[in-house]
């Protein structure tokens, strides 16, 4: 009896497993075909010299040692990218958080303003690139012609090695809609009673913001930082369209350099090594963020 009961349980479990896998089949197949296999292949290509025309030739770790020890451009590109992430992610986050706090007030026309701040985030990057190319135009662009009209000196924006990266950061800050919406939802979840209690304790507006609002929003701040970080390490379209890495490689970012190696120089092996380098960098930064989060993220649900 006991045996048949156990067998019945086992059979039911196998049945459940079969059905579960059947429904999950599209993703399982997709995972094998579009993630697992390409990752394995990419790892292999990274150990080869491969120009697509001829079959890949195994060269061991040569691509990696070239990347790490000999490729000066790689070093520049990596430092450009880290700079861009280190400045762009916090800048975008601060702007988004402040805008969300502004919108969280009882405002007339709030939906209109929310839409205004959100919209840039969902525009096609190609169209945004054209718009900003024109806004930043050194002679007739919006900003410089306004500066000229006010009798001020014009700014070289994208054509200056010193200002090209900050100019791209400004565009990034302009397109923070997703973060704004996430923060807005978090702000609306902060219990009123906490503010009331703070007021009773004599906290002024700044203290309420810094000691109530910010800590209560740390889970979404973590989420926005990590997704922002992952996204920004892969920054491609706007940079590729607006600067192509110019001037003087000041805006040559990791993904652009990788694309160049793969599809313009047909160095598929080296580009694959670069891709794994990028993966390692992203995972490292993400893990560090996650680890650090225990110290600064406050989850209201857990006992303190």
């Amino acid at each position: 009896m006991a045996v048949t009961a156990a067998e019945r349980v086992r059979k039911r479990q196998m049945n459940a497993l079969g059905k579960g896998l059947l429904f999950a089949l599209p993703w399982l197949l997709g995972f094998l075909a579009f993630t697992a296999y390409p990752m394995a292949a990419s790892l292999y290509y990274s150990l080869t010299r491969y120009d697509v025309l001829r079959p890949p030739r195994f060269i061991g770790l040569e691509n990696y040692s070239f990347m790490l020890f000999s490729d000066n451009l790689f070093r520049l590109v990596l430092s450009n990218t880290v700079w861009f992430v280190a400045v762009g992610v916090p800048a975008g986050l601060v702007i988004a958080f402040l805008l969300a706090n502004l919108l969280n007030n009882d405002l007339k026309l709030r939906p209109l303003f929310r839409t205004l701040f959100y919209l840039p985030a969902i525009l096609p990057a190609v169209a945004s690139a054209e718009v900003w190319r024109w806004v930043y135009n050194p002679r007739y662009g919006l900003i410089n012609s306004l500066l000229k009209a006010w009798g001020l000196a014009t700014i070289p924006w994208l054509s200056s090695p010193a200002l090209a990266k900050p100019s791209l950061v400004i565009i990034h800050c302009w397109a923070q809609g997703t973060a704004i919406v996430i923060f807005l939802a978090a702000l609306q979840d902060v219990p009123r009673t906490l503010y009331d209690a703070a007021v009773v304790d004599g906290a002024n507006a700044w203290n309420r913001f810094w000691h109530v609002t910010v800590p209560m929003c740390t889970p979404s701040i973590l989420f926005v930082s990590i997704t922002g970080l992952i996204g920004m390490f892969q920054y491609f379209t706007l940079g590729w369209l607006l600067t192509q890495g110019a001037p003087n490689n000041a805006t040559e970012f990791y993904s652009m350099y990788l694309y160049r190696n793969a599809f313009l120089y047909f160095k598929m092996g080296y580009a694959s090594a670069l891709a794994w380098g990028l993966f390692v960098v992203i995972v490292t930064f993400t893990v560090v963020m996650m680890r650090s989060s225990a110290r600064w993220v406050y989850y209201g649900g857990e006992a303190v």
């Binding site: 579009f34 390409p38 990419s42 390490f233 892969q234 993904s255 990788l258 793969a262 694959s272 891709a275």
Partner: peptide, 8 residues
């Protein structure tokens, strides 16, 4: 990142 699977 898409870049890892892009080439294969």
């Amino acid at each position: 990142p898409f870049q890892v699977t892009m080439i294969p």
